[in-house]
C-alpha cells in the first residue's frame, strides 16, 4: 500500500504529511508501525527502535490501523490557528476528535469531517476514517484524514 496511490476524487491531491495514511479514498487507513517482536503499534509510524521499555525490537511492519474507533473526547477551533496551519480565508471553524482504537489500544487525534460540529457528536460515539481536503495552496490540494460519525 503506497501513499502515492491516487484514487478518483482526490486526483493530483497530495497528503498533508507524506506517509501517514493511504490515499485510497474508498478505504482510507492511517499507516502505523508494528514491532515484530512485541506487537506494539506506533503512530506516526516512523520508529527505529521499539519504545516499549521491555522490548529490544528494531524491526517493524507497516500496518494499516483500524479505520473505525470510539470518540474519547472532542472539541473545536473557533479561532484561526497559527502557521503552519493553512487556513481558508475567511476562516472556517472546524471540530476535532480524539478517537480510541480498540485493537491498537491507543487514541489518535484528527479533525472531524467538514460540517460536523461539537453538537453532532458525543463521547462514546463510533466514527470512521475518511480523507478530505484540508487546505489548498497555490492551486494544490492537500488531503488529511478526518473522523466521520457512523450513520
Amino acid at each position: 500500500m503506497s501513499s502515492s496511490e491516487i484514487s478518483n476524487g482526490v486526483n493530483e491531491a497530495l497528503p498533508v504529511i507524506e506517509g501517514w495514511f493511504t490515499m485510497d479514498k474508498a478505504d482510507a487507513h492511517l499507516i502505523g508501525s508494528q514491532c515484530t517482536r512485541c506487537q506494539t503499534y506506533f503512530f506516526p509510524g516512523k520508529v527505529t527502535f521499539c519504545r516499549n521499555p521491555t522490548c529490544e525490537g528494531d524491526t517493524f511492519d507497516a500496518v494499516p490501523l483500524s479505520r473505525e474507533g470510539t470518540i474519547w473526547s472532542y472539541t473545536d477551533a473557533q479561532y484561526k490557528p497559527p502557521e503552519p496551519y493553512v487556513a481558508a480565508d475567511p476562516f472556517e471553524p472546524y471540530a476535532i476528535a480524539a478517537v480510541e482504537l480498540a485493537k491498537e489500544r491507543m487514541i489518535i487525534l484528527g479533525q472531524l469531517a467538514k460540517g460536523i460540529t461539537v453538537d453532532d457528536v458525543t463521547t462514546g460515539m463510533q466514527v470512521e476514517l475518511q480523507l478530505q481536503t484540508l487546505f489548498s495552496k497555490d492551486g494544490q490540494d492537500y488531503v488529511s484524514w478526518v473522523w466521520q460519525p457512523k450513520s
Binding site: 504529511i17 472539541t75 477551533a77 490557528p81 497559527p82 502557521e83 496551519y85 476535532i96 487525534l109 463521547t123
Partner: peptide, 27 residues
Amino acid sequence: DDPDWVRFRLGITNPTYFSLYAQRRKD
C-alpha cells in the same frame, strides 16, 4: 518529523488539548 510542527499543521493547538480534557469531564 517534529510533532509540535505536525499538530499545528493539522490544526491542533494548545487549547485543543485543554478542551478535549474539559469536554471529557463534562461527558
